[in-house]
């Protein structure tokens, strides 16, 4: 009788635990296979959360870099107009100097853009933590690149990683198309007052505008790649959550039914035992006279 009672009590406890925790597997012995599968699921879920965060951060970085490059293009376009004005041969020395100052200002702005950082990380410094461009009188362009040539690659999936930046050495001081060099040449040409030199330098600035435009394609591609990965990760999260709930979750309505069944069983067992226990022949005998 006591064994029956104990068993019914245990069933009740299990049902109660499942309903209160919302889990059908509360310890490995409840379902060894599910418990083992959950190890992978837990790790994968953690990773996917982190991948999603990486994607969000990278998207911000990429769009920031893209808009920075757009502002560089704007700056270069105004430098180009200044160059065209300086090359028409009708300018006084004072005018040329004024234009040189204007372009120098533009150059400073472009350097500031090239040194943009997001969350302490330089957008155009490769993987280096040093300020990408610093003034250097000994350099022909007046600036030295302190970053490296590497790209930051961010893991956004188990087998997927996306390059999220281009180093400054490729964007701003590329040996074949040096953006900073073209601006500083224009400044020197304007300062020297040589119209033909100004014209050559202006052409170089025009080429730089095109070149930056080409670099922006990289960021647009990265942006679309990240966006599609974001969608994929959202699906993955749903899949993993579903898998987890299939493995160790509890069907609430079934569990609740089970609980109330166990309750009924338990009280029935208690009632039955209470009825049987005190009964013996003695209850029905009259006391001896």
């Amino acid at each position: 009788m006591l064994a029956t009672l104990e068993q019914s009590q245990q069933t009740l406890n299990t049902a109660l635990e499942q309903v209160s925790t919302g889990l059908s597997v509360n310890q490995p012995s409840d379902n060894p296979t599910a418990a083992a599968s959950m190890v992978e699921n837990t790790i994968e879920t953690g990773d996917v959360d982190e991948y999603t965060q990486n994607v969000t951060t990278s998207l911000a970085t990429v769009s920031q870099a893209n808009s920075t490059l757009s502002s560089v293009v704007t700056a270069l376009t105004s430098a180009q107009s200044a160059g065209i004005e300086g090359a028409n041969g009708t300018n006084t020395t004072a005018n040329m100097q004024a234009l040189a100052t204007q372009v120098q200002g533009i150059l400073n702005n472009v350097i500031a853009d090239a040194n943009t950082s997001v969350g302490g990380v330089y957008l155009f410094g490769g993987t280096s933590t040093s300020t990408p461009y610093t003034a250097d009188p000994s350099s022909p362009t007046g600036y030295t690149y302190n970053g490296n040539n590497e790209t930051n690659t961010v893991a956004v999936g188990d087998q997927t990683s996306v390059a999220v930046n281009l180093p400054g050495s490729q964007v701003f001081s590329n040996s074949s198309n040096n953006v900073i060099g073209s601006l500083s040449s224009l400044v020197s040409a304007l300062q020297s007052g040589n119209s033909s030199a100004v014209e050559t330098a202006t052409t170089a600035v025009g080429a730089a505008i095109n070149f930056i435009g080409q670099q922006q394609v990289f960021y647009s591609n990265a942006d679309s790649q990240l966006s599609s990965q974001e969608t994929f990760l959202q699906q993955d999260t749903v899949t993993l959550t579903t898998q987890a709930s299939n493995l160790i979750g509890v069907n609430q309505s079934a569990a609740a039914t089970e609980l109330s069944e166990a309750e009924t069983d338990n009280s029935a067992a208690l009632a039955a035992i209470a009825k049987v226990m005190p009964n013996s022949l003695l209850n029905y005998l009259s006391t001896p006279t």
């Binding site: 990773d47 982190e50 991948y51 965060q53 990486n54 951060t57 990278s58 969350g119 302490g120 990380v121 993987t127 280096s128 933590t129 930051n152 690659t153 961010v154 893991a155 990683s161 999220v164």
Partner: peptide, 9 residues
Amino acid sequence: VELSGNATS
């Protein structure tokens, strides 16, 4: 995974 996005941080 977090480090991969920000190796130098």
